[in-house]
Nucleic acid binder design. Structure first.
Lengths: 219, 219
DNA sequence: TAAAATATTTAAGTATGCTTAAATTTTAAA
DNA sequence: TTTAAAATTTAAGCATACTTAAATATTTTA
C-alpha cells in the first residue's frame, strides 16, 4: 500500500485510539497538511478497500484490516526511533522525522531484525509502546497526562508525545526527560496551568505542554 | 526530488560510469522495469531540470548536477548496506533490497551519522566504494569484471559479488577465492562464456558467473 | 545498399493523490 | 429556532509517472 494510504490510516488510529479526538476528514486533513476535499476523497476510496468505514458527515472508523495496517506502520516507526536513538547522537525530534519516512520503506523482516537487535523493546524513546509482530500492544499503560495529575503527588515522566522540535528542546533544557522525577505543586484550574518541581527547579507549564507530557506514579 | 527521478539518474550513472553500457532510454527502461516510452518521457523532463542532457536518439548524459544526485543516492544505498550488514544477520541479497528503498528516505544528516557510526567505511559489504559526503569516491578501484577481462591476461580475484550459496560452494571447490591467480584464456563473445585457468585447471564459466567475479591485474 | 529488425519517439490515455471552487450539510450562536 | 459560521462533500482540474499503440528513426543483416 502507498505512503499516502499508510499515513491516512495511521492518522485515524492516532486521533481515535491515542488522542480520543474526532476522526472526521477535516481533522485528518489538518494532521496530514492536505485539504478537506482530499481527505474526504481518500476516505471514500479506502472504504472500498475495506480499510475503514465511511459514512457521509460521520467520523471515520478503521476496520480490523485498517487498524492492523496502522499498527504495523506504528510498530515500524517506533522500532526505527528506538534503533536510531540507540545508535546515533540525534535529537528526539530529528529521530522522529527520519522514522516518519523510514516507516513506510521497511519490510516486516527488517522490522523483526531491528526488534531482535534491540532485545525486543517494549517502549520507544518517547515512552510509547511498540506493537509486537502481530500488531498487539502487550503493555498496560498506567500513565496519566500531566494536566490531570494530582497536586502534591510525585511522578516519573513516562512519555513525551510530540513532534515539535521546540518542545523537545525546552524539555531537554529543563530536565523533562523520560524517567525524570517530578512533583506536581499546583494545578491552576482556571488558567489551565501546572506548577511543577523538577531537578529542584520550579516550572509553570501551560496546557499545550501538560497535555503531551505523561507521568507514572513514583514508587 | 522523487524516488522515480533518483532511480532514473542512479541507473544512468550505473550503466554509464560503472558498467560502461549504453545509456539510451531503452536500456534505462529495462533496468527500471518501465516502458521505453516512459523512459524517453522522463529523459525529456529531467533535461529541463538540468539533471541530464537529452538529444533525440542519443545516449543520456548526466550533468554535474545529475551525477551529484546519483552519487548521493548511491552513497546512501551503500551506507545502508554497510549498517544492515553490520547489525543484522541478513543475506546480502535481502540487505540490497532493503537499501534500495531506504536510500530514498534518508536525510544527509542521517547518512553522515551512519557513516560516523561505522567509522566512515570506504567500502560496502559487496566491496563497492562508498562516495563521501561530497559525492566523491576517494578510493581508486582498478578491478574489472571477469566478463570484460582481456584474453591472455593474468589477474587476481578481488571480489565475489553474490549472496548465492551454490555460487560460493562452486568457487571454493574450484579455487576461485579472493587473491587467487587466474588467466583468461578466451572470451567467447557470441555465447558470453569465458574460459579461464585457475590452479592449473581449466574452467568454462557463463555470464551468470563472470558478471559477479571481479579481478585486479596481476603484478 | 536496401529491406528487415529493432529502438526510439510521439500521442493519447490511466491511476494516484492532490488542488481550488462551489454546493451542501452540520454545528454553533444569537 | 432561525441564522450564521464552520465543516463536509461534490465537481472539475492538475502533476507525476506510468501505460499502450502507432509513427518514425536507427541499426543490423542479407
Amino acid at each position: 500500500m502507498s505512503v499516502a494510504v499508510e499515513n491516512f490510516v495511521k492518522t485515524i488510529y492516532q486521533l481515535d485510539v491515542l488522542h480520543h479526538e474526532d476522526t472526521k476528514p477535516g481533522n485528518i486533513a489538518k494532521k496530514l497538511n492536505i485539504t478537506n476535499a482530499a481527505a474526504t476523497d481518500m476516505a471514500r476510496k479506502l472504504s472500498t478497500k475495506d480499510l475503514l468505514i465511511y459514512e457521509k458527515y460521520k467520523p471515520l472508523k478503521l476496520t480490523a484490516l485498517g487498524e492492523k495496517m496502522a499498527l504495523n506502520v506504528i510498530r515500524k516507526h517506533r522500532l526505527w526511533e528506538s534503533l536510531l536513538f540507540n545508535l546515533f547522537d540525534m535529537s528526539l525530534h530529528d529521530i522522529h522525522r527520519e522514522a516518519e519516512l523510514l516507516e513506510h520503506q521497511t519490510s516486516d523482516l527488517l522490522a523483526n531484525r531491528i526488534s531482535a537487535y534491540l532485545g525486543h523493546p517494549k517502549f520507544d524513546p518517547h515512552g510509547d509502546p511498540i506493537p509486537n509482530e502481530d500488531g498487539v500492544i502487550t503493555t498496560t499503560d498506567t500513565s496519566v497526562v500531566m494536566s490531570k495529575a494530582i497536586e502534591g503527588s510525585t511522578y516519573v515522566i513516562s512519555r513525551l508525545v510530540s513532534d515539535n522540535k521546540e518542545f523537545f528542546d525546552f524539555c531537554l533544557e529543563n530536565g523533562l526527560i523520560n524517567g525524570a522525577e517530578i512533583e506536581i505543586n499546583k494545578q491552576f484550574s482556571t488558567s489551565n496551568m501546572t506548577q511543577i518541581t523538577v531537578a529542584k527547579n520550579t516550572l509553570l507549564l501551560n496546557q499545550d505542554f501538560t497535555d503531551i507530557i505523561y507521568l507514572n506514579e513514583f514508587n
